[in-house]
Computed example of a mutant assay.
Amino acid sequence: MSYPSPWQPWQPWQQAQSSPVMLASHADRERAVDVLRAGFAEGRLQQAEFDRRVARAYEARTVGELSLLVADLPQGPVAIQPAAPPVQAYQAYPPVPRTFLPAPPPPTNGKAVGAMVCGVLTTMTMGVTGIPAVILGHSARAEIRRTGEGGDGFALAGLVLGWLSIAGWAVFLVILFLAAVTSP
């Protein structure tokens, strides 16, 4: 026994062919607006065209009028294409370039990650990892500028935390030195 899908695409052409002058119900108008919203979300309609069609959909009196508003849009989910074409078809057609896909993000620089880890560990190691954080941070930022890798924020975080750790130790040693000099 098969159950009906909870999402049923609206197919106005079936109703319009039988009776294009049949009065449209509120549900018919809402289904037409849903098709328009899906077309707008997919980039098939511009904002002004979408607004105009939605206004006309709510003013439509017949199913035929609604079918004209959505006639150039898909009426439901698009069928899923197979992941890979058959071998014969692949050999017959050249591969399609990936022009519409976003570019993959560049890899993250390992030294930048190391700089951030050392910078975070300065709080747990009482500042011992501050100097490696600064060294790794500077070398990572130079590599990132040269190679175009990602991770500049990690390197910068490691640099800031490392320099804060070094400054904290410098202030602590100055206070310790002043206390040693001024004590009798």
Rank of each mutant, 00 (worst) to 15 (best):
A167V: 15
S183Q: 07
Q81C: 05
V120D: 06
R44S: 13
W163V: 07
T125K: 08
G127A: 08
P184W: 04
E49I: 00
S139F: 13
R98T: 09
G110K: 02
A57R: 00
A142H: 08
L23D: 04
A24L: 12
M1A: 13
V120Y: 13
A41Y: 13
W10V: 12
A27N: 02
G43F: 09
A32Q: 07
G114H: 02
P132S: 11
A170S: 14
L176N: 10
D28C: 05
T125A: 12
V78F: 06
V70Q: 00
G162L: 08
P20D: 13
G110R: 09
R31S: 10
G153Y: 14
A115R: 01
Q81T: 10
V87E: 02
S67C: 06
Y90H: 15
T62G: 09
M126D: 01
K111W: 04
I166K: 11
F154L: 02
M22E: 02
G168S: 07
F100S: 08
R145D: 10
F100A: 07
P77M: 09
R61V: 02
H26Q: 01
T182R: 06
T99Y: 11
P12K: 06
G150Y: 14
P74W: 02
S19I: 14
M1D: 10
V128L: 01
M116H: 13
F177R: 10
F154Y: 15
G43T: 03
V78N: 06
F177C: 01
V120A: 10
T125S: 13
W7F: 11
A83I: 02
T122L: 12
